[in-house]
Amino acid sequence: MAYFLFRRTLGFVLTLLAVSVVVFAVMNVLPGDPALTILGMDASEDALAALREQLGLNAPLVTRYVSWVWNALQGDFGISHSFRVPVSELISERLPMTISLAVAGMLVTLVLALSLGITAAAQHGRAGDWGVMFLSQLGIAVPAFWLSILLVMLFAVKLRWLPPGGFAGWDDPVAALRSLILPTVALALVQSAVLARVTRSSALEVMRQDFVRTARASGLSHRRILWRHVLPNALVPIVTIVGMQFAALVTGTIVIENVFYLPGLGRLIFQSIANRDLPTVQALVMLFAAIVVTANFVVDLLYVVIDPRLKARA
């Protein structure tokens, strides 16, 4: 167990390091001269020199990389070129927005996907199964941003039940929640399409196993067997996909924030691209990639919690 944890943690740290190398390389080596990228072709030589000095571009690449990582570990991502405040400040201002959206999206996704997937498996080969499979096939093909636009046109423009976008902050919690409903739904519907399929096929697999017959022979109801016996056993592949989907979910929040004008990290990234604010983009890309890698790491650990057999082996 300890060895397993150690190996996994080591792998996780190494992956994070490798990711940081990639991010750093793309953002610092590819452009040739980041100062030129930031200021544009018509910048004066003086301004360029000043910016190089400010960004520490005169130091060798390796030194710059090491100090970037070192500072980042202490929560210092440098100064935003366009906002002229520390990047960490920008991030901590907007992180709650993105996290609320991601967590809400994940929760709704789980509830939707698990219930649809299990229902489909229980109805295997019958109308309910076909219905769920059809919807999920469709859901996979629908882009989240288009679904968002459709939802806005229906619920905000036509019915006027919900705001079309924007976020006024948590001072008015009801208004805040209302402005999160459509983004969450848009994020979750598309995500649950994939997950519902995985849940279904994984549940079908489990339903063929002997212990399900034992449960039935003990006089348990179908419903109880499905939720108490089949679902937990179906979770291992589901959790794998959830881990992989986290990448899609993170990407999804970036898109959705831009569709609904929500002031989160996803919006910040796009503002920074428009402003050629390389330090901020670099920090945010690293942050998002780190979230994806961390999600997969957590999934690895979750297996052990879900399945006692693995604990014995690990």
């Binding site: 992956t15 990639v22 990448a247 990407t251 691209i273 390389l278 983009v281 990639a289 994806v292």
Partner: peptide, 22 residues
């Protein structure tokens, strides 16, 4: 390959767009 999975297409496109313009 594992490393590649840490970067969804959008993140990669964002980096490229920041460096070279969209």
């Amino acid at each position: 390959a594992d490393l590649g999975f840490a970067f969804p297409a959008l993140l990669f496109a964002i980096m490229l767009a920041a460096v070279f313009g969209p």
